[in-house]
Simulated scan of single mutants.
Amino acid sequence: MKFEGRAHKFGNDVNTDYIISGKYKFKTLDMKELARHVMEDLDPDFYRKVSPGDFIVAGTNFGCGSSREQAPLAIKYAGVSAVLAKSFARIFYRNAINTGLPAVECDTDQIDPGDELSVDLAAGVITNRTKNAVIPVKPLPAVMIRILNDGGLAAHFKKHGGFNFD
């Protein structure tokens, strides 16, 4: 899997209420509507600035808080191709993979807001084209790559009739 886009950088401990505020996630299940409000408590203009393929870049413990799957889904529907962070809250991490949103663990110190990035999950590298730097990523297990390639866990089940990792 390869992605290209710009970095939108946030800090540490970005919880799921910052990703999508509770004032929205209890009013609708329409992911396109929720996507319009992604990250707005941290950056009110995020939805207007993000372009399809861009990345959310963060520090440690991204996605902490509640375990609602609306957070990674809303990010995905906003057009973000992957979230790059030093670490993830485990439930968010699994929900992201299960919904088809790559959650990539890497050192994000060499990435600044607006940097042009190329992410190659198969090669296990991020290329920061703005700074001409190569950043290794923590490899995703083959099972997670397969789920992501299929579009998420539900799509994987539909395609294979259950778990199929041969």
Results as ranks from 00 to 15, higher is better:
Glu69Cys: 08
Asp112Val: 11
Pro113Lys: 03
Ala89His: 01
Phe26Lys: 09
Met39Lys: 01
Phe92Lys: 02
Arg36Phe: 00
Val38His: 03
Phe55Ile: 14
Ala74Lys: 03
Val125Lys: 01
Arg36Met: 07
Val50Asp: 03
Gly124Gln: 04
Ala142Asn: 10
Asn132Val: 13
Phe165Glu: 01
His156Arg: 10
Asp109Gln: 05
Ser51Leu: 13
Ala133Glu: 04
Gly152Ser: 07
Ala154Asp: 13
Asp41Gly: 00
Ala142Glu: 15
Cys106Glu: 04
Ala35Arg: 01
His156Met: 06
Asn132Phe: 06
Ala89Ile: 08
Ile75His: 07
Pro102Met: 14
Met144Thr: 00
Val104Tyr: 07
Leu42Lys: 06
Gly59Leu: 02
Gly152Leu: 12
Gly161Leu: 03
Lys138Met: 09
Ser51Val: 15
Gly100Val: 09
Phe157Lys: 07
Tyr18Asn: 13
Tyr18Leu: 14
Val14Arg: 00
Gly63Met: 10
Pro141Asn: 08
Leu84Cys: 11
Thr16Trp: 12
Lys159Ile: 15
Ala142Leu: 08
Ile147Phe: 08
Asp45Trp: 08
Tyr47Gln: 03
Cys64Leu: 02
Gly100Tyr: 11
Ala7Tyr: 12
Ile56Trp: 05
Val38Thr: 15
Leu121Arg: 02
Lys49Ile: 10
Arg129Ala: 15
Ala142Cys: 01
Ser118Pro: 02
Ser51His: 10
Ala78Trp: 09
Glu33Thr: 14
Val83Leu: 02
Tyr24Leu: 10
Lys138Ala: 05
Asp107Met: 00
Asp150Ser: 12
Asn132Thr: 15
Lys86Asp: 11
Leu29His: 12
Asp54Ala: 04
Ala85His: 03
Ala123Ser: 14
Leu101Cys: 01
Phe3Tyr: 14
Arg94Cys: 02
Gly124Ser: 04
